[in-house]
Amino acid sequence: MINYIIQRVVHAVIIIVLVSLAVFLLIRMLPGDPIEIIVSQNTLASYGPEYYDQLAHEYGLDRPVMIQFVDWFGNIIRGEFGNSILHNFNIGEQIKDRLTVTLLLGLTAFVISFIVGPLLGIISAIRRGTWIDNLVTVVANIGITAPTFWIGILLIYFVGLKAGLLPLYGYTLPWTDLGLSIRQSIMPIIVIALSPIASSARQMRSSVLEVLNEDYVRTAWAKGLKEKAVIYKHVMKNSLMPVITLQGTMLRQIIGGQVVVETVFVIPGLGKMMVDAFLSNDYPVVQAVTLVMTIVVVISSLVVDFLYGWIDPRIQYE
């Protein structure tokens, strides 16, 4: 077990370094850099094109790329993310604030989809063919085939604008104003959780249908157990396993969904920061955000993997 953990952590570190290096190199190889943007935006002000070299030197962008990388990585390990070239904010502080928002929304969505998805799956499997099964199937199909941003837009239009029930956009931290924070989080969380709910409900439905045909379920019915006992004790436990192995996929859906949702609902999270940084080619921000994103992804998939072992003792770690 200890060996396995060490091995996984080493793998994780290798992935983090490789992704950072790849993004670091690739983004520099392509045309258009932040210095050019500064220079072109300020032709009338203090910086003319002749300042390009001076500025590039100031930001250390004229040095060999590998030296820049080693230098940057060293700073990161010391906890210094540096400043944005274009907007001059402190990247470390900005990331801290935004990561809090993203984690709050993401974890809530994860927990909700982990409970709601399988529950819907069970209900639709044991009430197979009824209206509730059809409803779940339709919702699951929408969750899988509809674009995330579109669900968000629909909710904003009908729930926010037409019905006026919830705030349209923005985000407030729960410790600033709990009521407002909850009201602002409802729609984004629904949108983020919809596609993981859809895929886990589908998986749960087919796995429950399979388990219902097992001999031990027939035995449980035959010995006169009540429906609740059969479903909770025999069906649910045994059909949950394939759904639990789906958690990794759900996690990726949530992280991807957040990037879109933060743009639709104008939420100051890490995903929005990533999109903005990539759109403006702000090197230090792009590097820092990619690094933090990769770390979040790698750590959460590590946690999910260890959870499997905790839930299903049959899984052996080599």
Binding site: I15, V19, G248, L251, R252, Q253, I255, G256, G257, V259, V260, M274, M293, T294, V297, V298, S301
Partner: peptide, 8 residues
Amino acid sequence: MMAIPSLI
């Protein structure tokens, strides 16, 4: 590669 969310 599969561990990285595809949108990212």
